[in-house]
Nucleic acid binder design. Structure first.
Lengths: 171, 171
DNA sequence: GCAAATACGTGCAAGATGTATGTAAATGGG
DNA sequence: CCCATTTACATACATCTTGCACGTATTTGC
């Protein structure tokens, strides 16, 4: 989380953990497998946080705003953005990386789009969900690297608002 | 481009190039520096292709469609997406990676947004450009990993259309 | 024509990963 | 309660990789 997985050697890891490399390779197949476990833990922490913040919100639109805010909140943990958005795709591959973040509010997003755009095919909804999810990720990334949180939150709400309320032609 | 930078050792590289590792380390500071050169070459190839395809299109809206199509075309080169969108951020860092892709049509995108949303602040336009650019990137990524090209092109046009024609409130 | 910079090639040293091997502790069936 | 098996480590090693130091040939420029 501090220096990145490439610059973290297994001897450093086990030293901090107070065990030996033997223990590490007993519990994990290789260094990538250990990284996978860490990444899954971070992804779950984010998903749990979003769940907590949206559980008691009944109105769908309010829930999406709450979920969006919770997502940005969770992404403020130092190193989390780089770990999940930059390192995970490179280390674990695209498929695993998207599976990790699949839980992070994209369901709510898809539901909202399905409701707002009833005339579109599920494939189209899926693609849109993916693209908006990518925009969320980029916003978090930019914020993590010094971008203005409020500005990106605004732009993101602008984007989602346009798509949900926009007059898109049927496919 | 075929197996990724992490699984490509410098002895393999120089063997294919017909030189020794000494030559490599004479021309490049380290392996990352070599990767940087390759990534810059790929980014330039994409930018050039987009330029060629949009140079003769006068209508702004048509130019943006042409640019979008050219972008997706250029991203079909095997390995290019992974190199630029997955490995570059992890290897070169976020700042360098965005600088690399900054040229890839994001200027046209920003111009289009500025024209369509004259009441918004430049910061807001910049953020929106970034988010839409991220959506473009994700679309290319999904297409590269087996996603339906036409579906993602459609969704992307839907997204851009909504933002350009949407009724977003002023900030 | 010569000095300096450039363009390589060779050899080496440090470090990293993964695996093979050995040992102690926990578990579970009879 | 005892023994066998599995689990949970630790140690040592072999392989690979990177980057640097050093040596040499070629080109450049005054």
């Amino acid at each position: 989380m501090e220096v990145g997985v490439a610059d973290t050697a297994t001897p450093d890891i086990v030293r901090k953990a107070g065990v030996t490399r033997g223990a590490l390779y007993h519990h994990f197949a290789d260094k990538t497998d250990l990284f996978r476990a860490v990444a899954q833990g971070e992804a779950k922490a984010i998903a749990d946080h979003i769940d907590r913040e949206t559980r008691d919100v009944t109105d769908p639109e309010m829930a999406m705003v709450a979920g969006s805010n919770a997502f940005f909140d969770a992404m403020l943990v130092p190193g989390r953005v780089r770990l999940l958005m930059e390192e995970a795709p490179a280390v674990l591959g695209h498929a695993e990386a998207v599976a990790l973040t699949r839980a992070n509010g994209s369901e709510e997003l898809r539901d909202g789009l399905t409701e707002a755009l009833p005339d579109h095919t599920p494939e189209h909804i899926d693609a849109l969900t993916n693209l908006l999810s990518a925009a969320f990720d980029r916003a978090a990334l930019e914020i993590a690297y010094g971008g203005d949180l409020a500005a990106y939150k605004d732009a993101m709400h602008h984007l989602v608002g346009d798509v949900l309320g926009g007059s898109a032609k049927q496919p």
